[in-house]
């Protein structure tokens, strides 16, 4: 079937299209302007405001979410381009009463100050530890977390938190004792 893109669209046309997003295991049917980025869809249309906008240009990582288990900057992709794939945001990770180990570690090691970059940092850390080759050294953690800027300078705590969760996973007994 052909799509009706033939002919010059009217300058002002911004007709909404159906978009289905699967976020944190739940399906959401929306009608969206095709211009809506995945980030804005999550924040403005679905209420997942845990994912933050720091630059809207792929330059800070505050908008990091997992799409099909990969971390991406949700500000540089359109919502319509991310249908039929599982999307996980910070809200899908854990709640204050049932925190994910990385969330706990961020609190314990003070891996944040203002908290604005934190959702992105945590989503990156989850991808790093659960879906990518585990980092072998602190230097590697630092390099692979460098797509998430933190203006408050919480980097030392972030590295500690990730290292501890990695070590606990490698060596559960020692990890618990620590």
């Amino acid at each position: 079937m052909d799509n009706p893109e033939i002919g010059q669209p009217d300058e002002t046309a911004d007709v909404a299209v159906p978009v289905t997003l699967t976020v944190n295991g739940r399906r959401h049917d929306l009608m969206l302007d095709p211009r809506v980025t995945l980030l804005d869809a999550l924040r403005n249309y679905l209420g997942f405001t845990g994912t933050k906008k720091g630059c809207d240009q792929g330059q800070c990582g505050a908008c990091t979410v997992l799409v099909a288990d990969r971390r991406i900057d949700s500000c540089l992709t359109l919502a319509v381009m991310n249908q039929d794939v599982p999307i996980v945001t910070i809200e899908g990770l854990g709640a204050p009463e049932s925190l994910h180990p990385i969330q706990k570690a961020f609190i314990e090691h003070d891996g944040f100050q203002c908290g604005y970059c934190t959702s992105g940092q945590i989503m990156s850390a989850v991808a790093l530890l659960e879906h990518e080759k585990p980092p072998a050294s602190d230097t590697e953690i630092r390099e692979r977390m460098s797509g998430n800027l933190c203006r408050c300078g919480a980097y030392p705590g972030i590295v500690e938190a990730i290292r501890c969760v990695r070590d606990a996973a490698r060596n559960p007994v020692a990890g618990e004792a620590a």
Binding site: N3, P4, E5, E11, T12, A13, V17, P34, R35, L78
Partner: peptide, 23 residues
């Protein structure tokens, strides 16, 4: 961002054909 239509191409030939129709 100016408004645009979004279409999904299904094959290289389809992509080329759509591009041919929309300079």
């Amino acid at each position: 961002m100016n408004p645009f239509r979004y279409v999904k191409a299904t094959s290289p030939a389809d992509a080329l054909a759509r591009m041919g129709r929309n300079p």
